[in-house]
Amino acid sequence: MNKTSTIKQTRLPAKAGVGLKGEHYQDICETSPDIGWFEVHPENYMGAGGAPHHYLTKIRENYPLSLHGVGLSIGGSLPPSEEHLSRVKELVDRYQPESFSEHLAWSSHEAGFFNDLLPLPLTEETCQTVSEHIDLIQETLGQKLLLENPSTYVGFEREDFTEIEFLKEIVKRTGCGLLLDVNNVYVSCTNHERSPEDYIKNFPMEAVGEIHLGGHAPDEDDLGNPLLIDAHDRKVVEDVWALYDQAISQKGPVATLIEWDNDVPTWDVLFSEAQLAEEVLQKYESQTSSTNAPDKESDLKEPILKEQVA
């Protein structure tokens, strides 16, 4: 059942943002850079006090904020941990983020938490459990969830859906939105020998509330075929920029994040990477501003599937 009418639907500005790293707290507080918004993993702010909350509070006063969870294990067979969900809820209440997102993946099972985004088979059964988990999260948080398409390295023998069909079905059942990670599209399509351009072409852009861009590491699989690994440890490659351009040409400008979590660069390097995304957004902003005005708050109360593709 679509429960969007009871769920708060704020959105991030259609600008470039970056993942907030502890290494950059001081640079940001001292220079107030001209950047659209920041994103954090709520799991990194689940301590009681100290520097993380001190800086996040300051930064949140001046910028829109996105909470991007990595611990709810939405794709698992077990429901999200109540304890963890209530910790997330506490942060949502405290920081009132414009957006909350999570992954089409699992990270916890009976043995514990694996600290990785693990794959699930896209079947009727998992479509049902993922929908139930998202319903629970949206109801608890009182906020719409954006679900991110994953980077995957293996497939499953038995699957009932393509990834895009699966995501569309989840959007239909839960009223959630989508986070389109263009680097994940490139990584997964390369790893499974699919066309990333077709993936973007067929993606339900009307549901997209945010885009991610990041770097990946090249490797080879058991047969010597290319195997890309979602590493978030370097710059975005040319092919991913081209796919991003394609996505924005279809969707129009939308909040776009540079994810750089490992081998974190200086603030200046990260900022200039975000500027590259901003340039693409501005290119399409000027092309579409007369015909494709951003949605008004009132439009957002409509179920998302009724929105027209731009």
Partner: peptide, 23 residues
């Protein structure tokens, strides 16, 4: 079992080990 095999029934050990390494 249940993880998709590669061409000619090759077990995707290296692919699966990406997850093991990440963990």
């Amino acid at each position: 079992t249940g993880i998709k095999l590669l061409k000619d029934g090759v077990v995707p050990k290296k692919r699966f080990s990406v997850y093991r390494n990440n963990v």
